[in-house]
């Protein structure tokens, strides 16, 4: 967000002048005149692009801006542009849950734009990708990716947590090479803490 009413930026094309769309127009014009006056020589013969941010100028306002520029010798207005409208802030959408009632086997890949709940095992060589959370009511021995769309608060829970790889929002952890034995029994949760995946028993995670 621009804090000043007017901002100058030099580019190869010339000087870009950004008119802050959150400031009242008369104040912007005032500030523009002031800034131009304070560095009159700098603008001599300059090619200028005016960016009005999100604001659409009326014909009258355009006339005002160009009349301000005309007071300076050689300043050439080459273009008047408007920033692209910003996408409205994403509204978090309701996530659905996909319930799988059989084991997910080697070679099977499963993607769901919400949560995935598996009633059974996820075997080595199987892969689950969810934009939400992954919950395995059995042994997780394959690959699980939660928060696929980038949700860093997503988690993976399994009754027996022994994944070959687990990812959350694109951050990956894999099983250490020296870990031959299966994970201990009891549900565990994998989630992000300080940008790293941490796996811990569910109970501890809840009471903390």
């Amino acid at each position: 967000m621009l804090e000043e009413a007017v901002l100058f930026k030099g580019t190869r094309e010339g000087i870009h002048i950004y008119l802050n769309d959150e400031v009242e127009f008369p104040q912007v014009v005032n500030s523009l005149e002031h800034r131009l006056a304070s560095s009159r020589n700098f603008f001599k013969g300059a090619r200028v692009v005016i960016n009005t941010g999100q604001r659409t100028l009326s014909a009258e306002q355009v006339a005002t801006v160009s009349s301000v520029l005309k007071e300076y010798e050689g300043v050439q207005l080459i273009r008047l542009e408007q920033s692209k409208p910003q996408a409205p802030p994403a509204i978090p959408r309701e996530m659905t849950a996909l319930i799988v009632e059989k084991p997910v086997r080697s070679g099977q890949q499963l993607y769901h734009p919400g949560h995935v709940i598996v009633i059974g095992d996820v075997n080595p060589g199987a892969e689950i990708v969810a934009e939400g959370n992954v919950i395995v009511m059995g042994a997780l021995r394959g690959i699980a990716h939660a928060g696929y769309g980038g949700d860093k608060s997503a988690f993976v829970v399994a009754n027996l947590m022994s994944p070959s790889q687990v990812s959350i929002a694109g951050i990956l952890a894999r099983q250490p090479d020296d870990e031959f034995s299966d994970a201990k029994m009891g549900p565990e949760i994998a989630r992000l803490r300080n940008g790293q995946i941490v796996i811990e028993p569910c109970q501890r995670a809840i009471y903390e």
């Binding site: 059989k102 086997r105 080697s106 070679g107 099977q108 075997n123 080595p124 060589g125």
Partner: peptide, 12 residues
């Protein structure tokens, strides 16, 4: 066992 798991998935 890994290949069998894959085959069982295809049979299912």
């Amino acid at each position: 066992v890994r290949d069998a798991d894959r085959v069982i998935g295809l049979l299912e």
